[in-house]
Amino acid sequence: MTSLPTASPAADGHQKKLGLVIDLDTCVGCHACAVACKEWNTGGHMAPLTDLEPYGRAPDGVWFNRIHTFEAGVESGSAVAGCGASRTTHFPKSCLHCETPDCVTVCPTGASYKRAEDGIVLVDEDLCIGCKLCSWACPYGAREFDTDTGTMKKCTLCIDRIYNKNLEEVDRVPACVMVCPVSARHFGDLGDPSSNVSRLVADRGGFDLMPEIGYKPVNKYLPPRPARAVPVAISTAPAVSPPANLNLLARWADRVLSR
């Protein structure tokens, strides 16, 4: 059913909400999460992540992770020009596994569904008729249509890793979390207030994307920490001049190279 599931709390009474916490302070924009995600998922639960013309003139393909880059605080002076207080922020974006997402309820066939036990939003590829309505209903662009299979594809939160008994316990996290070189992505149960991810959100002031839409995203984003003031204005630094005690060869080289 594409109606949202009724609450099914765990034994200790809390409703499990698996999701990600993404730290915009530490993300360096390396795209490793996107690549690792593509690599795992093209053989995973929602495989394949079709690429069309991968080496052609206009490559196109399905990805569950996209890393955008924004400049925040434009009016405080551009970071691009090398001065000013605006902030360059790398911004990884994947499915937010919302609590009340319309991408599930608009589905006419029951292909799009939200799991009662952990809140993961999935697509049943055998039921999908490829009407694309769920992708229209997602404000975040988390769903991408596979024109080759004629069905909709989306992030599975690596459902085939996080419950996979064939993997070491330390590896039972989404591929994007495992690969991140700066630990900017954290995986856990956001329905449990004592979990690592819930504490991170509480400590760092984690926030929702587009709360005005009202889908109540489970994934949270951690804001960049305040910038440190730059002490020296680069343009007023003295020009570099060679020290006086250079030997003959070095003085000759300096003279030749200075012409």
Binding site: F70, A72, D208, L209, M210, P223
Partner: peptide, 19 residues
Amino acid sequence: ETATGLGRWGRVRFLESPH
């Protein structure tokens, strides 16, 4: 600003496309 949640720093400008 609401899409990125970065409005607290001021106006938000798109800098680089993911693809």
